[in-house]
Design a protein around this nucleic acid. Structure first.
Length: 910
RNA sequence: GGGCGUAUAGCUCAGUGGUAGAGCACUGUAUUGACAUUGCAGGGGUCGGAAGUUCAACUCUUCCUACGCCCA
């Protein structure tokens, strides 16, 4: 029995209804204890986040795969949750406090963290509601959060294990410091941007009595960061640089501070660049840090002239003049800083070497500095210039942990799709640097390390354990810092399944089957998961990694809030429906290439949904309802056999596309099958069967086959368009205990007669050719015409006999006579090897038919000539693949025959 | 500087060693029975440029040009 569909398709009306139904009935993860597992973990979005177009793509692809595997009977688990997003979340809550003239430091750490939890409970996880609107079928019953108690203890365990294995350590070295957020960040969180800056040249006076070979009493140095000269500890020159050989080991006396610093030989100094001498500030520059170490300065002795806010503070030797203290490192908010004051003072004291530029007219003009493009590091969250800063931080020995992941990808144990990303993966993993994992925040997993009065460190899961290690008398103080959010989200593939406990879930679903992520988090997250997976479980996190691209604005630019070109996926869902947006994402996703937003295309897929809706309405009006069998029904009629064969081919091709993760190919297959085959041909072919007076047996067979074929469409389309398909499935029959989401995927099992499918293909060709000819000759499309075929092929004979009704209805040829046509003007139409002569006494425009035939003749002549050329080439006949030669011969024969036929037809027209 | 990727119809994109496809747009046409969010028919491309391999190159190789991304 069927439930009548509304005449119009309204996505919004069905989306909420079905999502609720699925979720409330536990259909996202039905009990399938004995089924083969299939597992995906969702890249956990920030708990502060809301759904953007990138999430829409990422989650659509995952949902397509998980729904597909669920339909194929697997125990499909899609793990979902959010991550605590240390910096982002703390920023959100602090900003809210600011609005109330309040601040974090007005509270204790515990009070503040409790406020963040309050925020999370009230406003966090907006995105989880939004994912539901997209139709994503995750297992919400097991929703995870990286700060959950269980997850948190897994994080601490990893830290402790790594420490015990010597893979995590505390070190004093330069770190990327974000002075706005007042925390260290990892090198991945630094974005280098090229900005317009200046390059200043200074004189550093040699100490009394020392001169260069050329007699000068100073060394010229140049810098883009003059303020750091307050903490300079050396001047480096290249050991082979003759200009400076005599002064290596001597000293200069710095202006402003009066610090006496050595001239050292170091290969870092490039004789070709500028003066060849470089100032060395080991405490504030990564290169200088290395030079400083080589020159014999211990990190602890390196001068640090900036505080956590990047304001000038006094250095250990106390030589920075009072007037600089407290200044910001450089001009900020229209207030000059240390940089500007240093330049001003050096200029006043004659230590600035001006830059001479020429104007367009050739006049020389003096500037304080040379304008330059400078590669500058910015923090990806705070957006301010990163300061290399000397602090104690925790580092993970990433080089060691990267070994197994590299090996796994090399051996093929883990497959990266598309493969082109492997090189990028290796390039990064093989040159990986120690990973700074400590963050100076309050929100996050606090580092399980305690220090006694002597600074001795004790790493343990709990304070009690640490105390036990330190001894009863020791007064312990816990490390203030928290861990990088990626440190914890890297545990996602297994900590969400219960690890470190040995759970059945973990046993069954680890390693995961597949991970889908944007390539932008390949290093941040995907690589971390591999490191953690191998380290903690000795096994890969997933079999396969699929990387997709970015969704770009329609003009190809990157979407960003500042540009104001962000497309809201929820708006698109409101406008076109979730199914249309999902289908768009799938159809555009071709192995990692970026996707350009195209509303017209989304609209097109909304139209596709409407088409299917209306096709189903047509079925209903002819008594076509739900199928009663999984296997294709028995069919005698050619059209029915044909559609069964087409379904079977489509399933096969679809399975192949899905196995290769070709989302675009899969979407296009089901699209074209539904529209071009099922709607445009099959439904037209079966219409005569339901006409009055037609055979009841034929109608019954057709109802069964059509109902079955439509059901196969609904199943195959369901992963892409879950809402409309579930709605139509339910309306096609009463099957409340057999919802589409957990229905069975079709299995290609058709045994259809080739005669039948050939017959329909022949009818389709004949119909298309008749329509085309009529159109060119200006004959009304609806006109029914008599036709003659003198010596029909086998397929023609059979089809004329069995499917005259279809030929009449579609090709509009009737009566169809086997035999010679009467003399007189006529047009010719072919199908396969058959030629139909259609007399058109009085109707035909003879000139138009002549033109049409001449055009066709020209094409065939050209083709025949070209093929002749190829076939007369001995090299081709001898060396080409036999199939290619065979095909060329057949094509040549065909075109030669066409030339003959068309010439004769033209002659007949006079 | 190192690495990767992309250049195919007006636009957005598939594609295969045997002379090209889709969606949208465009043109013509059709309107009382599933659907104008539609049907039918059609026009439109020397597959970025050059050279090479091959019987045959849009497809493989090299170089060039343009654009994009990542790393330093």
């Amino acid at each position: 029995m069927t439930n009548t569909l509304d005449t119009t398709f309204d996505p919004a009306a069905i989306e909420a209804k079905w999502y609720k139904h699925w979720e409330e009935n536990g259909l996202f993860r039905p009990e399938r204890p004995d089924a083969e597992p299939f597992t995906i973990v969702n890249p956990p979005p920030n708990v502060t986040g809301s759904l953007h177009i990138g999430h829409a793509l990422d989650n659509t692809l995952q949902d397509i795969v998980i729904r597909y595997e669920r339909l194929r009977g697997k125990d499909a688990l899609w793990v979902v949750g959010t991550d605590h997003a240390g910096i982002a979340t703390q920023m959100v809550v602090e900003r809210q406090m600011e609005e109330r003239q309040d601040k974090r430091t007005n509270y204790t750490r515990e009070e503040f963290v409790e406020k963040v939890w309050d925020w999370k409970r009230e406003s966090g996880g907006t995105i989880t509601t939004q994912l539901r609107r997209l139709g994503c079928s995750m297992d919400w019953s097991r929703e995870q959060f990286t700060m959950d108690e269980h997850f948190s203890s897994a994080v601490l365990k990893v830290f402790v294990d790594l420490y015990n294995d010597g893979l995590i350590y505390r070190d004093k070295r330069l770190v990327n410091w974000d002075p706005k957020l007042r925390t260290a960040i990892s090198d991945l969180e630094v974005e280098t941007q090229t900005i317009a800056g200046s390059f200043w040249h200074f004189k550093y006076p040699l100490e009394a009595g020392v001169t260069l070979a050329d007699g000068r009493d100073y060394i010229e140095v140049a810098t883009t960061r003059p303020e750091t000269m307050l903490a300079d500890m050396a001047v480096a020159v290249h050991p082979d640089d003759d200009r400076y050989k005599s002064v290596v080991g001597k000293h200069v006396v710095l202006p402003l501070t009066g610090r006496r610093i050595p001239i050292v030989a170091d290969e870092h100094a490039d004789p070709e660049l500028g003066s060849g001498a470089v100032k060395i500030t080991p405490g504030h520059d990564f290169n200088d840090f290395d030079v400083g170490k080589r020159a014999g300065f211990a990190p602890a002795d390196m001068l640090n002239m900036l505080d956590a806010d990047a304001n000038v503070c006094q250095v250990a030797d106390g030589l920075i003049p009072e007037e600089f203290l407290g200044l910001h490192r450089f001009r900020r908010d229209v207030v000059d800083g240390a940089r500007e004051l240093v330049v001003q003072r050096l200029k006043e004291q004659g230590f600035l070497i001006p830059h001479i530029a020429k104007t367009k007219k050739g006049e020389e003009v003096e500037h304080d500095a040379e304008p330059r493009q400078i590669a500058t590091p910015f923090g990806d969250r705070g957006g301010v210039v990163i300061e290399p800063w000397l602090t104690d931080q925790w580092y993970v020995n990433a080089e060691e942990l990267a070994k197994k992941p590299i090996e796994a990808v090399k051996s093929g144990e883990v497959e990266i799709v598309p493969k082109s990303w492997e090189k990028t993966f290796f390039n990064w993993m093989e040159n990986i640097q120690p990973w700074c994992v400590s963050r100076q925040l309050w929100w996050g997993h606090r580092i399980p390390a305690w220090y006694d009065e002597n600074g001795e460190v004790y790493v343990a899961m709990t304070e009690e354990e640490a105390q036990a290690k330190a001894g009863d008398g020791a007064a312990l103080k816990r490390d203030e810092d928290v861990l990088d959010t990626w440190f914890s989200s890297g545990l996602w593939p297994f900590a969400t399944l219960g690890w470190p406990d040995k759970t059945e879930l973990l046993d069954k679903h680890y390693p995961n089957s597949l991970l889908i992520s944007g390539f932008d988090i390949l290093f941040f997250w995907d690589a971390r998961m591999m490191m953690w997976g191998y380290y903690n479980l000795g096994e890969k996190p997933w079999d396969k990694l699929y990387l997709h691209g970015l969704v770009r604005a329609a003009d190809g630019s990157k979407m960003s809030k500042s540009k104001g070109n962000v497309v809201d996926p929820l708006g698109l869902i409101d406008q076109y429906g979730a199914d249309a947006l999902r289908f768009f994402m799938a159809a555009m996703e071709s192995q990692g290439r970026d996707i350009k937003m195209d509303d017209k295309r989304v609209e097109g897929y909304r139209n596709f949904a409407t088409k299917l809706w209306n096709a189903t309405r047509f079925c209903q009006s002819n008594g076509i309802g739900a199928s009663e069998t999984l296997a294709a029904p028995e069919a005698k009629l050619a059209a029915n056999q044909w559609i069964i064969g087409e379904v079977s081919q489509t399933v096969e091709a679809l399975d192949k596309a899905m196995a290769e993760l070709r989302f675009d190919a899969a979407a296009n297959l089901i699209y074209h099958f539904t529209w071009d085959r099922f709607c445009d041909w099959y439904l037209e072919l079966i219409k005569p069967v339901f006409a009055e007076g037609a055979s009841e047996a034929a109608a019954a067979e057709t109802r069964a086959v059509a109902g079955w074929a439509l059901d196969q469409i609904l199943v195959m389309l369901h992963p892409f368009m879950p809402f409309i398909t579930e709605e139509l499935w339910s309306k096609q029959g009463d099957r409340p205990h057999y919802p589409l989401i957990t229905a069975k995927w079709p299995e290609p099992q058709a045994s259809v007669s080739k005669d039948a499918t050939d017959a329909i293909d022949w009818v389709i060709e004949l119909t298309s050719n008749v329509r085309s000819a009529k159109n060119e000759l200006g004959i009304a499309p609806g006109a029914k015409l008599a036709a003659f075929v003198s010596s029909p092929s086998d397929v023609a004979s059979r089809t004329i006999e069995r499917s005259a009704a279809a030929i009449e209805r579609l090709a509009r040829l009737t009566p169809l006579t086997v035999g010679e046509s009467p003399a007189g003007p006529a047009m010719q139409v072919t199908a396969g090897s058959d030629v139909f002569v259609i007399p058109l006494e009085g109707v035909i425009d003879i000139d138009a038919e002549k033109t049409r035939l001449s055009k066709a003749l020209e094409v065939s002549q050209k083709e025949a000539r070209s093929l002749e050329g190829r076939l007369s080439n001995a090299n081709f006949v001898e060396r080409a693949k036999p199939e290619a030669v065979e095909k060329a011969r057949a094509d040549h024969a065909h075109h030669t025959a066409e030339v003959e036929r068309l010439t004769a037809a033209l002659a007949r027209l006079g």
